[in-house]
Design a protein around this nucleic acid. Structure first.
Lengths: 355, 355
DNA sequence: AGAAAATCCGAAAGCGGTTTCGGAAAGTTC
DNA sequence: GAACTTTCCGAAACCGCTTTCGGATTTTCT
């Protein structure tokens, strides 16, 4: 191993050729004789030559890099997916030797400035945006900048750009129907702030299924809280304080469901017995919760890979509108979905008097 | 917002100045009059000028980028920290507008090639390496390449390079002492493959504390398994199958502890009653396990930030050996550490006969 | 007022690659 | 053996920005 990275110039001098000739030899140009091409290549990896990427990309006029904006988060429990997503993106990019640039921002305003900077300065040739808001300014910005991008999730108006999403509406219809099948009729919803489109989608699914089954549409049964386990706990406590508490609850995420279960247990009730709980995400960890959490599992494994492939295709000129992929979540039954029974309800009433 | 990013050239033409003059004006050179400097800057952000980074860095001869090698992993539950670490790194870098490049590799061999490529091609000015092996070839490689780096964790011989680590030996001494204080005497260890230095450190701490307290050094009480919840479960089952099973166990990670608890529960025993369990990591999620997991919590929040600051300092010329930071983990008592009692042991024996 | 010192900007070269173009040497055709 | 192709490489220009250097213009000093 050497000290300074060796440049094309020294490689050329070493071979007694000119710089452009060596460059073309390494890039398999047809106007270089096979003999010298081989000679050049051999020398190149004997000396451990690596083209300087800043120079190369400047010349090529491309960054060969895509950017990933890390979702902002407070709760440290909230981001189990980024590692997996980054790995998938990396796999997609590595086929072409593209790089992955990861940035984060403190505030939404910072984030806008960040985006504007990294695309205008030519640092990235495309961006993946995650967890979009209902009406996300980042998408407008990217369109104005004419920079390719894909979205992990969707906004309210999802036409005209590329995205990969899991159908939250469908998932919550499935979840509610499942609970109805277990004879529940007072089914609550614990949600996240509706500025996030995914929160709205899942609420929509909940409402659709409630109506379709002809159940109560009691607005008190819909609780919106902070997107964290603490938020879930607070929301569940609100629900349990209702004159007529629900016998089942669907939660917008597993993390919130864990909080909800804590609230349930703290009142001497048993998740899956007195109160059924269904989460969303399919976190592996749910196996270890108390009791193991029934959840709508999303096929998370390939998201990164798919998003990377889509973005690359768009950068190559594909129409973004052609790349929209909607996956379905599947009910993963563990131990928190139980049948409605009147005896359990007695327990609830008893608890209320007792408190 | 415009179409093509505007270059220094068009900005200069717009101002009726030459390119170098505009460049120096923007970079606050003293030989540019304050008047024109202001004029230039105003025009620059009116037109939304952003220096092309490839060009800038080529000229400057620096990449202004550091790389992060994602740890390879199979189990999707195993990486709760990367998001937090990346965020911390990002914060450290953003003060100087450096970029963060994230790469991953399939195999160790690929990883070595990756490293060699990204540093020789001038893509990164430094690297952060995580979860090192006892004798990690990546460190030798980085030293040979004369490229600045910091390690998240330590290797066996930890002199001469920069690292940030949490003292696993100390943590396991604390954990074992705590259990001894609860009158346990048969204390087991569930570990990960010893090729990882952190696994060795934690085992060392366990052994030191066992000896210091004059307890059994039964080799059967040390179980090494896959670094996952399943691994923890398998290991715990081995321990419970022993003629004389342990009454307490320390686990090398929370994730493995969750698996261990599953094994304990599956035999009708109660973690924290018949068998005490102490994990390591301090995952927030442990609040929701069954029962809530007592653990050695590591101060994870600032790791990324510190690693970033250290690496930047080294790139600036600091001696790497000066930057070695050892943090301590703290016992976080939840519900799985209980006192030894003979009655519980009776239960265990009973269970054995019963099976 | 003339010389010396400051002030301010343009010219030129360079960072390390890539691509276009032209021409010498070699090979082909009659 | 002359004319025509083909093969193969060097010369030159460029990507967009930075830095050194020199010189014209203005200011300051006596």
């Amino acid at each position: 191993m050497s000290d300074k990275p060796i440049s094309l110039k020294v490689l050329a001098a070493h071979l007694d050729l000119t710089v452009p000739t060596v460059s073309r030899a390494l890039n398999n140009y047809a106007d270089i004789s096979p003999a010298t091409r081989e000679r050049v290549k051999r020398a190149a990896d004997e000396l451990g030559y690596r083209a300087n990427q800043n120079a190369r990309r400047l010349s090529l006029g491309t960054s060969e890099t895509i950017g990933y904006l890390m979702p902002r988060f407070r709760s440290s429990i909230a981001q189990p997916f980024v590692a997996q997503l980054l790995q998938g993106l990396g796999e997609a990019l590595s086929k072409r030797n593209w790089d992955l640039l990861v940035t984060h921002a403190e505030s939404s305003k910072d984030e806008m400035a960040q985006i504007e900077r990294i695309v205008r300065s030519g640092r990235v040739g495309g961006l993946v945006i995650s967890r979009p808001l209902k009406n996300d300014p980042r998408i407008r910005l990217m369109q104005d900048l004419k920079c390719p991008f894909v979205v992990h999730g969707r906004t309210g108006a999802s036409e005209g750009y590329a995205w990969y999403d899991v159908d939250g509406e469908d998932a919550f219809i499935t979840a509610v129907n499942h609970l109805v099948g277990l004879a529940h009729s007072r089914i609550a919803f614990i949600g996240a702030p509706l500025q996030y489109q995914f929160a709205q989608d899942r609420l929509n699914g909940y409402q659709i299924a409630i109506n379709a089954n002809g159940l109560d549409v009691d607005p008190d049964l819909t609780q919106i809280a902070d997107f964290s386990d603490d938020g879930g706990e607070i929301a569940m406590n609100m629900l349990l304080d209702l004159p007529q508490p629900p016998t089942a609850v669907v939660c917008v995420s597993d993390t919130m469901a864990f909080g909800a279960m804590a609230a349930i247990r703290s009142r001497g009730l048993r998740p899956g017995v007195e109160v059924s709980v269904i989460g969303y995400d399919g976190l592996k960890f749910g196996i270890h919760s108390n009791p193991p959490l029934t959840t709508m599992a999303q096929p998370q494994a390939h998201a990164g890979r798919r998003l990377g492939d889509m973005l690359l295709a768009i950068i190559d000129g594909d129409d973004p509108a052609k790349h929209q992929e909607l996956q379905r979540a599947q009910l993963l039954r563990r131990k928190t979905d139980g049948p409605f029974n009147a005896a359990a309800q007695t327990t609830v009433s008893f608890r209320e008097e007792y408190t």
